[in-house]
Design a protein around this nucleic acid. Structure first.
Length: 654
DNA sequence: ATTAGGG
DNA sequence: CCCTAAT
């Protein structure tokens, strides 16, 4: 029988208190006497809270409040972590999603497991998570300090400095909670775990800061631990997905440890496995090789069927992270994954909350080396040379009985692979960490053509449509069948990664040229991992979308902006005319009506332009800059604006 | 996906 | 032109 464990992945947007509650409840349900003092259970619960606190801290959902005080008696050097309130959040320009209905106050270390109703006077939670810092090493503390500083900058809260210095000086590191036990628990175990390398990466143009690595890792650790803690015979199946893996001999003991609620030591190989599984940006459930069908789903809410027939809905973590957090993390962890799962290193190949798993996040290590003599505009334009070392296939999830043969395992994996590759993938492009969706931009405009060393290009395989792949017929649903049904060129059947890529390319509609060039070349090469030098005519790549890649905070962290394109008088004229006709609230219609074939003008652009036009029309001609707009047009702008404003006001009155 | 508005 | 919030 395969080993099974559960994990919970729906914490992200829950409030601090709720999380703590959940964790504690969970412990309780698993038989850990969380309310007792001393002993392992206390330590365990504490570490859980530490894990939560660490994660929250990294997400900047909590901060060190001004009134941070030390609890002289029990916790000499307490850090008080406080959930941000709405005011602060809005200052930071993001919203708070937490529900504050569970008002919980966790008081100090010795009472940390006692959850009291938080009576009144404050509508927020305090989490004294002093010792949570304990399990962080110096680098992580630095990282946390960074984040605190960041928060600090935004909030202007001087007291966070205290927290920072304390963190950095390591004041909280040791010796405060002896009774928590000297044993390093699973947090540490997990921390030291690294992911098996499953893909190749091109680190050519990357330099990494050690502490950034630690940050990512600690974050990973937090979420991993958080997930791991739900191991065992859990009773809430609703939010838990069951993960099964086939084990080799070594795993038995480890898995047992993992499924025992009280065994908090997480063996590193289990940790590896856990991380690996956590990293499942996408899950594939492949039924045993001979009977039963493979069923895949890759919509936002995956629904997987278990052997026991239960269903489970799991939302992808990535969708639960708030925009703020997303950006925040982005800033903090230069090497974490941008939205679509471009990844630098498998170590961070986690179920990173940023990797949107709706799309097959096939990560690609790419070295963008840009040739010199280019010119994008015009037929004799320059070319951009891209070397894509490898495509990383989206994570597969395979379930197979331990009694299966190695050969059948291979076939199963291949089947899953073929399915995902045949599932109409397309290429997403990242430039400096950001994905560009505007296919109409040229490489030149997006900056791909520029020869910047620090500029990184990423390609990712993304699913074209979030549709459900019907389970194959039972029995003979092998690779060939998949290949046949899902790809235009049947029978390209060699069991390797390259042919599927080719097939997929053939099936792709847009972005086809680049992709086919790539795949053709890789297909040509005999070595699967070979590096292909691909020369792509600029014109053909024109349809590609590109996004800037992210950088580590200190360094030239410029995000590639869209190229500024001034509105010509003719465009202004068209805009004015359209707005005169349609009004100021129907920018989509304006776009469709007057700028439908101007791909680079979005309705937002038009709206913005109208805004500036109104402004321009109101200021004195001397203050206007740029290409002068005829006064006649400006007058029309003012007239139309006045008219439609009044119109809108009237409508609102009614 | 659109709209509205601040930056 | 970017970013967000709110629809």
């Amino acid at each position: 029988m395969p080993k099974t464990w559960c994990r919970r992945r729906d914490w992200t947007m829950v409030s601090v208190a709720t999380r703590c509650l959940c964790f504690l409840k969970l412990l309780d349900q698993q038989g850990v006497p969380i309310r007792k003092k001393g002993g392992n259970s206390q330590k365990h619960a504490f570490e859980i809270l530490a894990s939560v606190a660490g994660e929250l801290l990294q997400e900047s959902k909590i901060f060190v409040p001004p009134n941070c005080k030390e609890d002289q008696q029990n916790t000499p050097k307490n850090i008080v972590l406080k959930e941000r309130d709405e005011g602060q959040l809005s200052k930071c320009n993001h919203s708070v999603q937490e529900t504050h209905d569970e008002k919980t106050f966790i008081q100090g270390y010795h009472q940390i497991y006692t959850l009291n109703k938080f009576s009144h006077s404050q509508d927020r939670f305090n989490l004294k998570a002093c010792s949570s810092i304990k399990s962080f090493d110096q680098s992580e503390k630095l990282c946390l300090a960074d984040q605190l500083a960041n928060v600090n900058d935004r909030n202007g809260s001087p007291s966070a400095k205290i927290g920072i210095s304390s963190l950095v000086s390591g004041e909280f590191s040791e010796g405060q909670f002896e009774d928590a036990g000297a044993e390093l628990s699973s947090i540490q175990s997990v921390k030291s775990a690294t992911l098996p390398v499953t893909g190749s990466f091109d680190m050519l143009e990357m330099d990494c800061k050690p502490h950034a690595l630690f940050c990512s890792e600690s974050k990973l650790k937090a979420s991993l631990f958080e997930d791991w803690i739900t191991l065992g015979p859990s009773r809430h199946a609703d939010n838990i997905e069951t993960v099964t893996r086939d084990d080799d001999d070594n795993d038995t003991g480890c898995t047992q440890a993992a499924t025992t609620a009280k065994a908090f030591r997480l063996p590193s190989d289990v940790a590896d496995q856990r991380i690996k599984n956590l990293s499942a940006g996408r899950h594939w459930r492949v039924s045993p090789n001979l009977n039963g069908g493979a069923s895949f789903k890759n919509d936002g809410k995956r629904r997987s069927f278990f052997h026991n027939g239960r269903t489970s809905y799991t939302r992808q973590r990535s969708q639960r992270i708030s925009p703020f957090n997303r950006r925040k993390l982005f800033n903090q962890f230069p090497f974490s994954v941008p939205d679509r799962g471009f990844q630098f290193e498998d170590k961070f190949n986690s179920a990173d909350k940023r990797s949107n798993c709706d799309n097959c996040t096939a990560a690609v290590g790419v070295a963008s080396s840009v040739a010199r003599r280019h010119l994008l505009t015009g037929p004799r334009g320059r070319n951009v040379k891209l070397r894509i070392k490898s495509f990383k296939v989206p994570e597969l999830f395979v379930e197979i009985p331990t009694s299966a043969t190695v050969g059948s395992l291979k076939r199963t994996v291949m089947e899953a692979l073929t399915t995902v590759l045949g599932d109409g993938l397309h290429v997403g492009i990242f430039l400096q960490g950001k994905k560009v969706r505007d296919d109409s931009k040229t490489l030149f405009q997006t900056g791909i053509s520029q020869d910047h060393k620090h500029r990184n290009l990423g390609f990712a395989l993304e699913s074209r449509h979030a549709q459900i792949i019907p389970p194959p017929c039972p029995g003979e649903q092998g690779l060939t069948r998949h290949a046949t049904s899902l790809t235009p060129e049947p029978g390209t059947s060699s069991v390797s990664l390259v042919p599927p890529l080719t097939n997929w390319n053939s099936g792709a509609e847009s972005d086809l040229h680049l992709v086919s060039s790539l795949s053709n070349i890789s297909a040509d090469s005999t070595i699967p991992n070979s590096q292909s030098l691909v020369s792509i005519p600029a014109i053909r790549v024109e349809t590609l979308a590109v996004v800037p890649f992210h950088h580590r905070p200190g360094c030239h962290e410029f995000v590639q902006r869209r190229i500024r394109r001034l509105f010509s008088v003719a465009e202004v004229e068209a805009l004015v005319q359209a707005v005169e006709k349609l009004g100021t609230g129907r920018w989509r219609d304006v776009k469709l009506g007057a700028f439908d074939n101007a791909k680079h003008r979005t309705y937002v652009d038009l709206k913005d332009k109208w805004k500036t036009l109104v402004h321009t029309a109101r200021i004195s001609p001397q203050r206007r800059r740029g290409e002068p707009v005829p006064q006649e047009l400006l007058d029309r702008v003012l007239a139309a604006h006045a008219y439609w404003s009044g119109h809108q006001a009237k409508r609102q009155l009614k």
